[in-house]
Design a protein around this nucleic acid. Structure first.
Lengths: 336, 336
DNA sequence: AACGGGATTTGTAACGTTACATGCCGAGCG
DNA sequence: CGCTCGGCATGTAACGTTACAAATCCCGTT
C-alpha cells in the first residue's frame, strides 16, 4: 500500500506538499497540485486514517450509543444522526447498550479510549445518580430524557408535555377511562416516569380520577410486551375506552393485543402512542402519536457535539440544554 | 491524558511490560501485573486506540454498509451483525449507502482507507458489471443478492426459492389470481428480479397463467410505495385474491393500502411478504412471510469476514459462498 | 559453585501522518 | 541595489503504541 512518501517521490515533491494537497491547504501551486494528484491516482494512494488520527488527535468519527438499533425509533433516530453528522464531515459508529447502565458506561469508556471524537448517548439506564460518571473530559451529548443540571450537553424531548397532550387528545375525543401502558420506572427521569407523569397531569386537568387498575406496566418497551399488556387489560374486567402508550413501538403491540381480544380501534378503544415513528402512518388502523421532531433533535444533538469537539482548551462552555417542540398527529386510532 | 510511558514510570517498569499487561500477554509476573494495573487505575490510563491501530495495522472495527438503517429489515440485520461481531471482538460502524451504487462505492473507499478491518456490504446498487470494483485487496463480504462468481465472499438469501415458496403458499391457500408487488429491477441479481422470478416459477408450477396486469412495480421498497401500489391494484379493476410482496416493508404498506380500499385481509385478499421482520407478528392482520434465518446469515457473514481478516499474506483463499435456508411462516394474512 | 534454560523484562525502531518552524524565491519598494 | 514580503516548498520532530530481538533474572541441576 502506497504511503505519502511514495507519492512524494513519484511527484518529485516533499511529503509535506503531498499532505498539503490532500488536506486542501493553501499555498500549493496549481501545477504542483496537479502533479501530486496524478501521482496519488497512479499509485492508488489512500491516506492511512490511523496515522492521521494519531497525529491530529481526531478520528472524524462520533459514537452513537442506543439501546437497540433494531427498534424502529432508534433506527430512525440513527438515520437522522448519521445524516446530520455527515453535514459536519463526521462518521457515526453505533454502539448497542442493550438498554443497560453497564452498556452505556461501556460506550462511554470506548469513547474515552479516543476511539471517537465525541459521543451521543441515548440514555435509558443512567440516572441522576450517575451524573458524576458523565463528568468526563470528553465531548458528550445526552439525547433523550432530561438529567437536570447534568454536567453535559443535553437534547431532550418534551416528555411530560407531550404525554399530557396525548392523553388530553384521547379525552377530547371522548375517552373517559384512559389506560396507560408504561415501562420500567427506574428513577425519576426515564421515559416511562416522565410520560406517566404527563398522563396523570392530563387526567387531573380534565377532572378525571386516576385509577391504578388502568395502569399496565411492562418491563421492556417492545411490541411483544405491548401486546401482552393490552390482552391483560382487556381480560382484567376493568373498563377502558382509551390507551396512552408511552412509545409507538409498545402501541403497535397494543393494537395487536386489542385485536386479539376482538376490541376494535378506534370504535371500542382509542389508542395513541408517542414518538411518531414511520410505521404509525401505515399500521391498520394508523396510529395517532406525538411527534417530537426527531430531525430537529438529531441535528441539534450533532450540532452541540460538533461545537464541543471544535472547542479547545480548558475554557469549557457551560452545558447547553435543548428541549424539542412537539405536535399531536391525529390518525385513525383516535378518530371516529 | 496519561500514556503508557506515564504508567510505566509510575509502576517502575518499562513501557513494554505495561503493553504486555494491557494485552494479556503471558510472562508477566503476577506481582508485576498487579503493580501495573494499580498504576493504570491511579492514572486513569486509557489506551490510545489510534496509536495502536497505526502500529498494529488493525482497527478492531468493521464497516457495515446498508442502504438505510431506518428500514426495519436493515435495523434488525445490523443488530444481529453487531452481536455477531462482538463475539469476534469487533466493533461495527454503520454506513448508509442510500441504496445507490455511488454510496456503496463510497463505503468501499472508506474501508480502503484502512478505517475498517473489513466491510460487510449489503448491496443493492452494485451489479454483476461491478465485480471488478470488488477486486480489492481488502476483506469484503457481500450480503444479500448473489453476484455469481464474484471475487469476494458472499452470503446470500434463497431469493428465488423463497419467493417461489411464498407464492406457492398463497396458491395452496386457494388463491388463483396472485398479484406481485416488486421493486426496481436494475440487473438480474437484485432482490426484486430474483423474487419476481420465483413468483413466476410458482405460477408456472401451479399451471396458472402469468398476467402482467397483476404486477405492480414500485420504485423503492417502502411502506409508502407499497400502500400506493395496493391502492393502484385495487382500483385497476383487475381481479386478484392474493399478493406476494417482495419485502415485508412493502407488504406492510400493501396491508395499509388494501385497508384504504376496504379490502379485508385475508378474507378478500391474502398477503405474504418476505424477510420475516419482527413487525410481521404484530401487524393487524399479522403478516405471513419467508424467514431466511437472519441470525444465521449475520453470523456467517461476520465469520467469513473475520476469517479474511485473520488470513495474512497473499495466499488468499477462494471466495466462499453461503446461501441461507428459509422457512415459510404462516400467519393471519394468509389464513382463513 | 558454575551452568543451562525457561520465565520475565527491557531497548530499539518503526507504523504514516501532520504541526511547526524554517527556507527559498521572485517581485515590489524605498 | 538591497531589503522586505508573500507565496510556495521543505525538514524536523513528534503522536503513543507494539513487533522483534535481546538482555536479565531466577531456579533447579550437575
Amino acid at each position: 500500500m502506497a504511503t505519502i512518501q511514495d507519492v512524494a517521490r513519484a511527484a518529485g515533491v516533499s511529503p509535506m506538499t503531498v499532505s498539503h494537497v490532500i488536506n486542501d491547504h493553501p499555498h500549493v501551486r496549481a501545477e504542483t497540485r496537479e502533479r501530486v494528484l496524478r501521482a496519488i491516482d497512479e499509485l492508488d494512494y489512500r491516506v492511512n486514517v490511523a496515522a492521521r488520527n494519531l497525529r491530529t488527535g481526531r478520528t472524524g468519527t462520533i459514537g452513537l450509543a442506543v439501546p437497540e438499533i433494531d427498534r424502529p425509533y432508534y433506527g430512525q433516530l440513527a438515520a437522522r444522526i448519521i445524516e446530520a453528522a455527515a453535514g459536519h464531515g463526521l462518521r457515526v459508529a453505533i454502539e448497542q447498550t442493550g438498554a443497560s447502565r453497564e452498556g452505556e458506561l461501556a460506550a462511554l469508556a470506548l469513547s474515552r479510549n479516543r476511539l471517537y471524537d465525541g459521543l451521543i448517548l441515548s440514555t435509558v439506564g443512567l440516572g441522576p445518580a450517575d451524573t458524576d460518571l458523565l463528568k468526563v473530559d470528553f465531548p458528550v451529548v445526552i439525547l433523550g430524557e432530561r438529567i437536570f443540571d447534568g454536567p453535559v450537553d443535553h437534547v431532550a424531548m418534551p416528555n411530560v408535555e407531550g404525554a399530557r397532550a396525548a392523553t388530553a387528545h384521547l379525552i377530547e375525543r371522548g375517552c373517559r377511562r384512559v389506560a396507560v401502558v408504561d415501562g420500567p420506572q427506574r428513577g425519576e427521569v426515564d421515559v416511562s416516569s416522565l410520560r406517566h407523569d404527563g398522563y396523570r397531569e392530563a387526567l387531573r386537568e380534565a377532572g378525571l380520577p386516576f385509577d391504578p387498575g388502568l395502569v399496565a406496566s411492562v418491563d421492556a418497551l417492545t411490541m411483544e410486551t405491548g401486546a401482552a399488556a393490552a390482552r391483560r387489560l382487556a381480560g382484567s374486567g376493568v373498563a377502558f375506552d382509551g390507551v396512552f402508550c408511552v412509545t409507538d413501538t409498545v402501541a403497535m403491540g397494543v393494537l395487536r393485543g386489542l385485536a386479539d381480544r376482538g376490541l376494535r380501534v378506534p370504535h371500542d378503544v382509542k389508542v395513541i402512542g408517542f414518538d411518531n415513528i414511520a410505521e404509525c402512518a401505515y399500521s391498520v388502523p394508523s396510529l395517532s402519536s406525538i411527534d417530537p421532531d426527531h430531525a430537529l433533535m438529531a441535528s441539534t444533538a450533532v450540532g452541540f457535539l460538533a461545537r464541543r469537539i471544535a472547542e479547545k482548551g480548558p475554557g469549557r462552555q457551560a452545558p447547553r440544554e435543548f428541549v424539542s417542540r412537539f405536535s399531536v398527529v391525529a390518525r385513525e386510532s383516535t378518530g371516529g
